[in-house]
Design a protein around this nucleic acid. Structure first.
Lengths: 207, 207
DNA sequence: GTCAAATCTGGACAATCGTCAAGCAGGTGG
DNA sequence: CCACCTGCTTGACGATTGTCCAGATTTGAC
């Protein structure tokens, strides 16, 4: 109906690629980029290790595909908070709450992200897809602060790169602290974000 | 003369360990943690690969030793600027200049640092030495901003963790941009740091 | 000079990796 | 029923890895 042939190889093919990418991301989140092997990925799926070369020409292509697949699900993590909030304070509190929540619930994915970003400084092939995610995350942070400025009614002088750099640095430190088991790492990060956000705006920031 | 026995095995032993750590750091900076092999480290030194197990029980112990060795040389990178500066503006300009300079001249070491810090989220054994460096870097950043506040005569409300998180985030983005060959990445970071520093202080920050 | 300890070499080991290819299962079209 | 394509399994390969060790070499004490 949708096409002349009843079987749609492209859809099936891509669907299985995504399924394998899912298993690969679980493994990558557990072991990191360096220690992840194709056999371990396969053992985390319902297939054998040989099938990976049927759907991916290369280990690197698999990783790159995973990076892109990972991107799609995480760059809109705060959209709900941004859209639903009606006051600046509500937005800020919803934001810091979700920041801590995602560190607790998705720590393996976040440490994988920082691992891959580090690897991109050594592996040329990773730079483009990694940079694409970094830009998408930067836009995500920008959507938050512009909406915050709107609700606050204060002028926003910072640049997207500045905002993302600041928040990402605080987030990374909190993730490190949380994985290392340091108590209060998340709460401290929340306080830091609460302290930083008003600084990005004009004089009315005391609210 | 310096001791009863003319031969000092401990000193010699440690001296060679440092020598090998030097070669290891060169290799690690080029290839990253994942792709660095003991044979490659040895080929970057004047010894054969077997000697590494004479001075280090394990590959991991070698890496950990390298991390600690690396720490000693980098945490005082800005001490000169801090001590020599007589005005707040001079300190800030010296700081941002040195930030860009170290990215250009020591990019392999910095990407290695971020690589190792990421690995510490997967490898338990790396957490303690990595965290020690992170704390030392935090203190380094704190020395800079406290001196800056002193020269500025303005109150400093931020915490060490906040200051380090912010600066480290901006530094990391600049390093990524520089390694990826993006023009203006360093200059943009310098502008961002110049914009952020005054925000950490009281109202007199417009200077 | 002699001898033993310290130092270093280079090859070998098992384990593990990415990759590949030959072959099996199962459904589809003719 | 046969031929065929797709999806998948299994086992093997060459290469590379960390590790270990037997022996060569160097060093320093006497």
């Amino acid at each position: 109906m949708t096409s002349k042939v009843s079987r749609r190889p492209v859809d099936k093919f891509d669907e299985r690629r995504r399924e394998l990418a899912e298993s690969a991301l679980v493994t990558l989140g557990e072991l990191g980029y360096a220690r992840t092997t194709l056999r371990e990925i396969a053992s985390n799926s319902e297939f054998s290790h040989g099938v990976l070369h049927y759907y991916f020409s290369d280990k690197l292509e698999l990783i790159v595909f995973c990076v892109g697949y990972y991107k799609a699900r995480c760059v809109h993590r705060y959209d709900d908070v941004v859209e639903r909030s009606t006051t600046a304070d509500e937005l800020l509190e919803g934001f810091v709450a979700k920041l801590a929540e995602t560190i607790v619930e998705e720590a393996p994915m976040h440490r994988l992200w920082y691992d891959l970003r580090s690897q991109s400084m050594f592996e040329e092939s990773l730079r483009e897809p990694v940079d694409a995610i970094d830009r998408a995350l930067e836009e995500m942070a920008w959507r938050i602060v512009t909406r915050y400025a709107e609700l606050l009614g204060a002028p926003l002088t910072a640049t997207p790169a500045l905002v993302y750099g600041l928040l990402d640095g605080l987030f990374q430190q909190a993730l490190l602290g949380h994985i290392a088991g340091r108590e209060g790492a998340l709460g401290r990060m929340q306080d830091e974000v609460r302290a930083v956000m008003p600084l990005l705006f004009g004089d009315r920031a005391a609210a």
